[in-house]
Design a binder for these strands. Structure first.
Length: 486
RNA sequence: GCUGCUAUAGUGUAGACCGGCCAAUCAUGCGAGCCUCUCACGCUCGCGACAGGGGUUCGAAUCCCCUUAGCAGCACCA
């Protein structure tokens, strides 16, 4: 048994080593507060988290809210909740909108070093020059001029779009994206929900500033940032700062759920979705509602790893991870879909003892009294079924008079049921049922479940022969449950 | 178009840097069976891949080239 445990440990997926991480790491998860976190975010969050746990160090949550157009005031709280749900090992949190003065100061320093200039060219004009590998007139401005223009910018001397700060890079760089990219812009509207400002750093600048200021040593992010990494290197070089180690993982295609924040928001506003946790959405709160455990999400993401190849996310693999966690602890209950009432003739009244968990007898039993009338799943009452076995109770013979079945006691012998190839089915005493609606990804199932299910609100249980479900709400009208997986 | 990255079974992943121990790992999936008063769990067996083509080499999944395919970026978004 010890060997078995050891074996299992050996097979535990380990992430590839990170260069220069031997003495600990400082990593960060840097979401944009535009909505709740979804599975895509979970990959970055989990990968960084796993590395910080592996090597030890600090894990910074950095809220990147430097674009007021992409800030949803409610998202700050949602992101925080989602991260708590994921149980990330966050050691500190910073919000970029709190740090504007820091960026302004660093920008001034960059200008003083001759690494940046204030560009007042019209956008189209600059683009044309850039594409032709030519410098714009502003590029040659003396440092003093640049500094005073920067002051003017900060003092409101320019209207939106009239000026921006650009980094001096290499105008001959074969990739036009590298050539003198902008690092600050002016924005009058919309107002930022957290701070009064109109000069905003662009991501490439604030990221470098913060990564340096916070001592970030390793960055794991999607490969959509590869070009940004190259751009950011110019800023590091201007300052003479040490560059972190980067890893870029590939694109992850996720099917079956909606991930686009704007699409989700639109759908919610139109009433198409019930909210951010609508199970058709790919948000973490939707997964939570469906009964997916945060550890399953993290494990699945670590198993996917940091490969730079594009992959397609597998729900099967996530469900498998979740099942490993949930199966050992989920209580078992009967749920009878499309219940059919059956009076069983000639059967003795008795109490059925069904285990709450077959793998853990210490959890005890559910007591289900048989009083003559039961409900059975409609799908099991078919003409070619001459006998069924009510699980933990007894056998029932089915006789057909035309299209109407009648039920009679078929003995207690399990062996008889086996010989007759009778299905062992779930059932409920007719007088002890709780209406239950089971919501699945593609519809709903109506049925009845054991009244004791009401005590499991918020938990994942297994409806025998159906699958794992999360008991969402319990009200006077019954139970609402979400299907997790088989 | 330009710049760059990548290509292992249905899916994910190991092996690739330092060619031979790889007739290719593990997980998941699927199939068969065992176990079982759940169609779950567990166990056993099986299925299934080095994108294609050249080259280097005694020897290539691993190195080089080409082709094909996919992806990312080329924003005053992150």
């Amino acid at each position: 048994m010890f060997a078995a445990l050891h074996e299992k440990h050996e097979h535990k997926k380990v992430l590839p080593d990170l260069e220069g991480a031997e003495h600990g790491v400082v990593m960060r998860f840097a979401p944009n507060p535009s909505g709740p976190l979804h599975i895509g975010h979970a990959r970055a969050a989990a990968l960084n988290d796993a590395y910080v746990k592996q090597y030890g160090g600090r894990y910074i949550l950095r809220i990147e809210d430097t674009d007021p157009k992409r800030v949803d005031p409610d998202a700050y709280e949602m992101v925080k909740e989602d991260i708590e749900w994921l149980r990330l090992g966050i050691t500190e949190t910073v919000t970029q909108s709190d740090r504007l003065p820091l960026y302004y100061d660093l920008c001034k320093q960059l200008i003083e070093r001759g690494g940046a200039y204030i560009c007042t060219c019209e956008n189209e004009h600059f683009k044309a020059l850039k594409d032709a590998k030519k410098a714009c007139p502003c590029r040659d401005q003396p440092v003093e001029t640049a500094l005073s223009l920067w002051e003017k910018m900060l003092d409101g001397g320019f209207a939106e779009g009239e000026a921006s700060v650009r980094v001096k890079t290499d105008l001959l760089h074969p990739d036009p994206a590298m050539r003198d990219f902008p690092i600050f812009r002016i924005l009058d509207a919309p107002p930022h929900p957290k701070v009064e400002a109109r000069i905003y750093p662009l991501m490439n600048f604030s990221v470098v500033a913060d990564d340096h200021l916070l001592g970030v040593t390793h960055v794991i992010r999607g490969k959509d940032h590869i070009a940004n990494t190259r751009r950011q290197r110019y800023i590091y070089d201007h300052f003479g700062w040490k560059v972190p180690v980067y890893r870029h993982y590939g694109r992850m295609g996720i099917e079956g759920v909606v991930l686009s924040t704007s699409q989700m928001r639109l759908g919610i506003n139109e009433g198409k979705y019930t909210g951010w946790d609508d199970i058709r959405l790919g948000t973490l709160r939707a997964l939570a509602r469906r009964g997916i455990s945060p550890d399953a999400v993290k494990n699945a993401m670590v198993a996917i790893g940091i490969g730079d190849v594009d992959i397609s996310f597998s729900w099967d693999n996530l469900y498998a991870e979740n099942k490993k966690l949930v199966d050992p602890v989920a209580n078992r209950y009967f749920f009878v879909p499309e219940p059919v009432t059956a009076v069983v003739e000639g059967a003795p009244r008795r109490m059925a003892h069904a285990m709450l968990h077959p793998g853990d007898p210490s959890k005890g039993n559910r007591e289900l009294p048989f009083e003559g009338t039961v409900v059975l799943p409609k799908s099991e009452i078919v003409p070619d079924a001459a006998m069924v076995r009510l699980k933990d109770l007894f056998n029932v013979k089915i006789a057909w008079a035309g299209s109407s079945p009648s039920f009679s006691y078929g003995g207690d012998s399990l062996a008889d049921a086996r010989t007759a190839k009778a299905h062992i089915i779930q059932w409920l005493p007719a007088r002890q049922t709780l209406p239950c609606t089971l919501l699945t990804m593609d519809g709903k199932m109506q049925g009845v479940c054991e009244p004791a299910v009401a005590k499991e609100q918020g938990k994942v249980v297994q409806f025998e022969r159906i699958g794992f479900v999360r008991i969402d709400t319990v009200s006077e009208s019954g139970v609402l449950a979400y299907f997790t997986h088989t």
